[in-house]
């Protein structure tokens, strides 16, 4: 196999892994704090992508400079997180904390079905393609291969910032510590005066915003069609499960692993690229059923 193809695959994997990290870390964070696996998480990704693409198309249509897209991506992600995520948490999830896991899965699955159709109604079924931000950043030459700066530098940088930012937020800020406290022992945290309801809401909004940010960033690199959300939920679950649900740094490692595995497959066995992430997940789970980075749980009886 030619070495430049391997390099190309590695760079692709870096970009792709960074993108799925953003989505998976949100899923993992929500699970870690709320104990709910949010099946509708893929929808937040898709909605973020559509809002971003529609915004960029509107911006460029008005003749505004394409760099405005970057601040807009952040605004779009936060808006999606606060409005859609906030509504889902307050109206529905709040009623099912502490219930059977299966019931929680069913409720978020119902939300998923609703949001998938809502996207089609709002954004239509025609493909969206808004690559102006990617073109604006130009390309970079690495060992004789031209690569877009957007995918090679911007997306991995954002992912790294999110990883470091989340770590600092959870360890250094009062609210971050409150989140960690609620995760470890909700009753004790509540007794200490922490408002668990608020912690849940804000965590959910952060998680949803991260998925939407992943979507927004992806919107410049690919054309958007209905159904991207469903692919992303299983993919981000594969990443989160490989890492161990609730593991933030682990999600970064797993995302890179799966991203690289998949890009290698894209170059060498394109029919089977979709299989690779799941093969990696299955292999990991067979050896470590709780994921790569999860520690042993304590006794219940």
């Amino acid at each position: 196999m030619p070495p430049e193809m391997l390099l190309l695959a590695a760079l692709d994997g870096l970009a792709y892994g960074s993108l799925i990290f953003l989505v998976a870390v949100g899923l993992s964070l929500i699970f870690g704090v709320l104990g709910v696996l949010n099946v509708a998480h893929g929808s937040f990704y898709a909605i973020g992508a559509y809002v971003a693409a529609a915004g960029v198309l509107a911006l460029t249509g008005m003749g505004l400079p394409p760099w405005l897209a970057f601040p807009f991506f952040i605004v779009a992600a936060v808006l999606v997180g606060v409005i859609v995520g906030g509504l889902v948490e307050t109206l529905l999830l709040r009623r099912i904390y502490g219930k059977e896991e299966v019931l929680q899965l069913l409720v978020t699955f119902a939300v998923f079905m609703i949001l998938e159709d809502a996207q089609k109604v709002v954004f239509g079924v025609q493909p969206y393609f808004a690559n102006a931000p990617m073109n604006w950043l130009g390309t970079i030459e690495v060992f004789g291969i031209f690569y877009t700066q957007y995918q090679l530098i911007l997306i991995p940088t954002v992912a790294l910032l999110v990883l470091v930012g989340l770590r600092l937020f959870l360890r250094r800020t009062a609210f971050g510590r409150a989140i960690v406290a609620v995760t470890q022992d909700r009753d004790a945290a509540t007794a200490m005066g922490i408002d668990a309801t608020r912690v849940y809401l804000i965590t959910f909004i952060i998680g949803a915003s991260l998925a939407a940010l992943g979507g927004a960033l992806s919107s410049a690199t690919t054309s958007l069609t209905p159904g991207i959300g469903s692919g992303m939920i299983v993919l981000s679950f594969a990443v989160a499960a490989t890492a161990g649900l609730g593991r933030i740094e682990g999600a970064a490692v797993a995302a890179l692993l799966i991203g690289l595995g998949r890009s290698v497959a894209v170059y060498f066995a394109p029919e089977f690229d979709v299989l690779i992430p799941y093969l990696i997940m299955v292999a990991v789970l067979l050896i470590k059923p709780e994921g790569l980075f999860t520690t042993v749980q304590t006794r219940k009886v």
């Binding site: 696996l37 899965l105 469903s230 299983v234 679950f237 299989l275």
Partner: peptide, 23 residues
């Protein structure tokens, strides 16, 4: 596996099969 993993692993495997059927 139970609950979340059971549900999601089934989903993942079926999605792989779906993709293979298409590709």
């Amino acid at each position: 596996y139970r609950a979340i993993f059971f549900g999601m692993l089934n989903l993942a495997i079926s999605m792989v099969f779906f993709s293979l059927l298409e590709k």
